[in-house]
Simulated scan of single mutants.
Amino acid sequence: MSSIFIIIAGILWGIISVFVTTLKSIGFSSMEVVALRVIFSAIILVIYLLVTDRSKLKIKLKDIPLFCGTGICSIVFFNFCYFQSIEIIGGAAIPALLLYTAPIFVMFMSLFLFKENITVKKVISLLVTILGMCFLTGVFSGKETITLEGFLYGLGAGFGYALYSIFGKLLLKKYDSMTITTYTFVVASVAVIPFSGIIKDYNLMLNTESLLWSLGLALVCTILPFILYTKGLLKVEAGKASILATVEPFVAAIIGVTVFSESITVEKIIGMVLILFAIVLLNINIRKAK
């Protein structure tokens, strides 16, 4: 069931383009959309816990650095690096591929921090996932050029993305998943507001259409998937969880074709099949005959 939670989280993250595209068409910049995402998520989560279970809002001061890990080092940092990489490279294909180097970082960090084994099945699944991402993002057929700066920002996005699994795993030893998710976005909000530019566009933010889409972005593509992903980490190794979550670009490709009328190519189909194969392979129990 824990693996299913993580896959559902990946699916919900995969439909985020619908909300982001709409908010950007209203007039928000990319970083302002990030700010809207974390601010509305933080507000909703705090209100929910105030009404249902205030005990989950209690944390120890000594654990604040860990919440800074999930909120700033992961959520804010990976978004910043990701958008910088897109701006420098001038396209989303290679940055998206570099973002999904996260399982590599998670797997090796987990080896030293949690003593998780790197099995043959994990390595094969990881390699197939990377190959699938290459097909899905059009790297093999694309003509993008990439600078060292853009490449490093892309890797930074992957590293930041990976840190949520690491810090989340550490926090789960002490707190409920709701507590972790709530304070992750509270810390992220405090960190992102000053440089996002959202303050000068507060009138646009209070527009009815903006409020509705921001609430949808917070509830459907942020709060629910993060809670499910964090719950999944209770019984799933961080390395495995990170690979399972790569169902996200698979879903994003489907959304692109069905909602935004993007062309479906043989390359995209191959990429989807490879990622799906990696997820299935990761969940098959291969038993040795006695």
Rank of each mutant, 00 (worst) to 15 (best):
F114N: 08
I279H: 04
K235P: 10
F28V: 04
I104S: 00
A252R: 03
A289S: 13
L170W: 10
V106F: 03
L111H: 13
A253W: 05
S165I: 00
L45S: 08
L111V: 08
K56D: 08
V220S: 06
L97E: 05
K115V: 01
M178F: 15
K143H: 15
L111P: 13
L163M: 13
I43L: 15
I43P: 00
S41L: 09
K143D: 15
G71D: 01
G150V: 05
V247P: 07
P249K: 07
E209M: 12
G142M: 07
L244T: 06
T179C: 02
G132M: 00
M1K: 03
V51Q: 07
L45V: 02
G271D: 03
I227M: 09
V266P: 02
K58C: 11
T119S: 15
I43Y: 11
K173D: 14
V273G: 10
E267I: 07
E116Y: 10
K60A: 15
T181P: 02
F260K: 03
T52P: 11
I44C: 05
L45I: 03
M109L: 12
F185H: 00
L171V: 03
L211C: 02
F83A: 00
M272G: 14
L131V: 11
A157M: 09
I270H: 01
S242Q: 02
S141M: 09
V38N: 09
F159P: 01
T258P: 12
L152F: 06
Q84M: 04
V187G: 12
L206E: 12
I75T: 07
V192Q: 13
Y48G: 14
F80P: 06
F159A: 12
G91T: 12
E267Q: 07
A191E: 12
V128Y: 08
M31A: 12
K24G: 03
K143Q: 14
K290W: 14
I146S: 02
V34H: 11
